[in-house]
Amino acid sequence: MTDEKYKVAEKVRDALGELLQGIDQPRPNRIYAIVHQDDFPAAARILYEKLGGRLATSTALEVRDAVELIYHFMLEEDGVLCNLKTLVAKPELTVGSVGAFLPAADWIEREMSEMYGVTFEGHPDPRHLLLPDGWPEGNFPYRADYPQNPDGFGEELPDVYQKDKK
C-alpha cells in the first residue's frame, strides 16, 4: 500500500512534465509540487482534468517578497494529497486564475485576493467575498503589515456604511 502511494509522485511528475520545478513526498500520502507562477493555471488544469484531482481548498501565505499559493488537490483514487505550490512575486502579485475553468476555485480565489491582494487574471467574478463591497482599497487584513489594532480605523468606514448613517 505504502509503496503504491510512493509511485504517485512519478505519475504527477509525468503529467506535469516540463512545468515542474520541484517535487517532494515527505510522507506517503502527501506530495508537494512546485511550479512557476506563469505555468500555474496550466499545471492546475492538468491535476484537475488528467489526474482527477479534487480541489480541497487553497492557502495563501506571505513570504518575504512574494505571496505563496498552495492549491491542495486531493487525488481521491490514489488517496494522496497533492499540494501544488507557486510563488507570486510582489509588487505585481498577479497570477492566472484557476477559477476560470474550475468552479471549486471560485470562492477561495476571491477570498485570497481580498485578504492578500493577489490579482487573479481571468477570474469570472472578482467581487469581494468576505469583506463588504465598499472596503477601502489597498487594505489586506491577512498581510503582515496590516495594523492589528489601527487607531481610529473604524472612523473611515466604507461608503456603504456612511450612506446608511445618513
Binding site: T57, T59, I108
Partner: peptide, 15 residues
C-alpha cells in the same frame, strides 16, 4: 504557527 488555514465543508457545499 505562522499560517493556519481553515476550510469548513460548507465553504465548498454552499456554491
Amino acid at each position: 504557527p505562522i499560517r493556519h488555514k481553515v476550510r469548513a465543508p460548507t465553504f465548498t457545499n454552499l456554491p
